[in-house]
């Protein structure tokens, strides 16, 4: 980071005027130069600040305000109900189901994607011909739009569809389920689709982490007689800690807000029974489509608070060392 005050340039020896258009040697030029610097700072940052404040921060403030009213979205809100929308949400079994579904997705993603991605990343980190192609293929699902992925799996998982045919041809016909219609199965099906979609992201991050592990360390371990597995377990894995923690953080935040895949893949009837909905789909169903704007905004605030608190806790207790390290390393 630049530590010297840039307005003081040019300092020692050089007698050329400050980097401006008008050469000015009088004492007032210093103040003019400072003023110019501030004009530049304000001029360059204002557009970004305005857009950021207006479309990221301000809406959340409005959500808190709207959430205190019963309001159908027409005219200004007048029917003040205090915190009633919040208590209503926590009394609605469908919302509680949504919370449970979010929890399943958060922990399911961490527990399934983590080990799976780690295994694949370790495999694709071995040196072999054609590795680059495999790395590319594994990452393709992540680049597809969530909607495309949702429609795709919906078509594959349809009853008596391709997936069922595949299972039967493998002699696993007994496993066939109503993947997207069975109320007890659908959330696990969705978890599978989400895993398919996002595991590539975890792999790509872990491969980046692995490329930072010096070859000499693993070679030294091998010379000392460690097997490949022992090397991975005792040398590589500990060095991957920061990468794994940052991935877990991003995965958690994404899982708490997940909307697209759920919305597209599971039909509204199943969602409305609480079998597959998440906080985000519940919010959009109630707020936008049922026009319960006050209530929907209360759900938005709940979703926001849960995500933000989770993010802060994760940041505070798990990520802090990593991020400090990253910033200082990068800046030097």
């Amino acid at each position: 980071m630049t530590s010297t005050d840039q307005t003081r340039f040019p300092a020692g020896g050089v007698s050329t005027p400050p980097a401006g258009h008008r050469p000015a040697g009088r004492p007032s030029s210093r103040r003019a130069e400072t003023r110019r610097k501030w004009y530049e700072i304000v001029g360059l940052t204002t557009p970004a600040i305005v857009v950021y404040v207006m479309f990221v921060l301000v809406p959340m403030g409005f959500a808190v305000y709207y959430s205190l009213y019963r309001w159908r979205g027409v005219g200004p809100p007048t029917d003040y109900v205090g915190l009633r929308n919040y208590t209503l949400a926590f009394q609605d079994p469908i919302f509680l189901d949504a919370l449970r579904n979010n929890a399943i997705i958060v922990f399911g993603s961490l527990l399934i994607q983590g080990p799976v991605a780690l295994g694949i990343a370790l495999l694709l980190n071995r040196r072999f011909r054609g590795r680059a192609v495999f790395r590319l293929l594994v990452f393709v699902p992540y680049v597809l739009a969530e909607v495309t992925v949702g429609i795709m799996w919906k078509l594959i998982l349809v009853e008596n569809g391709t997936f069922d045919a595949l299972l039967k041809s493998l002699g696993l016909g007994g496993l066939v389920q109503a993947w997207l219609a069975d109320l007890d199965v659908v959330i696990w099906t969705l978890l599978f689709v989400l895993t398919w979609k996002y595991v590539g992201f975890a792999i790509i991050l872990l491969l980046a982490g692995l490329s930072n592990v010096p070859h000499e360390l693993t070679e030294a371990a091998a010379i000392d007689g460690a097997s490949w597995w022992q090397t991975q377990r005792h040398v590589t894995l500990p060095l991957l800690g920061p990468t794994i923690r940052i991935w877990a953080f991003l995965s958690m935040i994404g899982s708490l807000q997940v909307f697209d895949v759920i919305w597209v893949t599971s039909v509204p009837a199943v969602r409305s029974l609480g079998a597959s909905g998440t906080m985000a789909t519940y919010m959009v169903d109630n707020g936008f489509f049922a026009r319960l704007w006050g209530y929907g905004n209360a759900v938005a605030v709940i979703l926001f608070v849960i995500s933000f608190v989770a993010a802060l806790l994760f940041q505070r207790f798990i990520l802090r060392r990593d991020i400090e390290g990253a910033i200082t390393r990068r800046a030097n």
């Binding site: 990221v56 301000v58 807000q257 959009v284 704007w293 905004n297 995500s307 993010a311």
Partner: peptide
Amino acid sequence: VGLLFPAGAAILPLYLM
């Protein structure tokens, strides 16, 4: 701080605005 901000949560008030 925007990186921690759950973008999806603000969608309803964003629509209203």
